[in-house]
């Protein structure tokens, strides 16, 4: 039995005429271990600042500044979080961010679904031109629109309201959303609508009852995209809103830091609160998030 195995092994060796194979194998193993370690080091580099943020959000200045710089907090000061949420206004900012982001996602999805459907499926002369027109918008940098938008919003007395940023967020989310959705709609067979048509549905019913539910995967992708851009956006939010009651998390925390630089703990807590929803979303949908962003990159 044992002999048989030996011969087979020898035969294999012979076939490939690789006398140095064992050496090659150890070399390969060393290299791959080395690579693995390098990857681990890189992972630590990517994570360590975030770990540090998490720990100092529970510490007081004494620990952060030297007492216990990188260890876990000696005392977990939840009071930092309470302080950030109440006197630091982070709770208000958080609510504002949720209002703005949810509204943006809902409105964007609705507009993207209806307009993409009309562009891809319905019969009208200018549908192709309209699509191209929307897609041109992907090349427009927000900087170029900042001042004119400021003037427009001022004219309509919309500055300093949630709408002042929801409206631009939606408008700038439309092109990429329409790109993703029209691509997705092409893949839905037309027969479905034809069958529904025979049943005598109205176009609104076909859209609402039949197409909209089918669009769900694409809506998920678009929502992730829209979430990332509106939750994290700074320039518009910083320019169009200056009342503390209305600020979103990004701007709110930014101004909070400028006003009160002395205590790091509560600021760290504010930063963690601003990041936590994103991290949770990422953990739950990590595959989907990565896919969405790749899609945006490749198509954009």
């Amino acid at each position: 039995m044992k002999d048989k195995k030996m011969t087979r092994y020898d035969l294999k060796m012979d076939n490939q005429t690789e006398f140095y194979r064992p050496l090659n194998k150890t070399l390969k193993k060393t290299v791959s271990t080395f690579i693995f370690i390098a990857l681990c080091i890189f992972a630590v580099i990517q994570l360590f600042p975030l770990y540090w943020l998490m720990t100092f959000s529970f510490k007081d200045n004494y620990e952060i500044f030297g007492g216990n710089v990188i260890g876990l907090p000696q005392v977990w000061r939840v009071s930092n979080y309470i302080k950030a949420l109440t006197s630091g206004n982070v709770l208000v900012f958080l609510i504002n961010s949720v209002i703005v982001t949810v509204s943006t996602i809902v409105i964007t999805s609705l507009l993207v679904c209806t307009s993409s459907y009309a562009i891809v499926r319905m019969k009208w002369k200018l549908s192709g031109v309209t699509l191209v027109y929307f897609l041109v918008g992907m090349m427009v940098p927000i900087h170029a629109t900042l001042l004119p938008l400021f003037m427009i919003l001022r004219k309509f007395k919309l500055l300093n309201s949630h709408l002042a940023i929801i409206i631009p967020y939606v408008a700038f989310a439309l092109p990429i959303g329409i790109l993703i959705m029209t691509g997705f709609l092409e893949s839905i067979p037309k027969e479905l609508e034809e069958a529904a048509c025979i049943d005598g549905c109205s176009i609104y019913k076909v859209f609402g009852k039949l197409i909209l539910p089918l669009m769900r995967p694409a809506i998920a992708t678009i929502s992730i995209f829209t979430y990332m851009s509106s939750w994290n956006e700074l320039m518009f939010a910083n320019t169009f809103i200056n009342s503390d009651r209305l600020k979103t998390l990004t701007v709110g925390i930014f101004s909070m830091v400028n006003e009160n630089e002395t205590e790091w703990g509560p600021i760290g807590a504010g930063l963690v609160i601003a990041t936590l929803p994103t991290i949770i979303m990422y953990i739950v949908f990590s595959g989907q998030v990565q896919k969405s962003l790749i899609m945006g990159a490749v198509k954009g």
Binding site: L111, V112, T114, S115, Y117, A118, I119, M122, W124, T130, Y133, F134, V136, G137, V140, A144, T145, L147, P148, L149, I152, I167, P168, V170, A171, F172, L174, P175, I178, I203, Y204, F207
Partner: peptide, 21 residues
């Protein structure tokens, strides 16, 4: 229906993204 489906998006996009340039 086409008008209802496309016009809101088109108007918003034009006023907020294109016109400001």
């Amino acid at each position: 229906a086409i008008f209802l489906f496309v016009f809101p998006a088109l108007l918003l996009f034009t006023v907020i993204v294109i016109v400001p340039i």
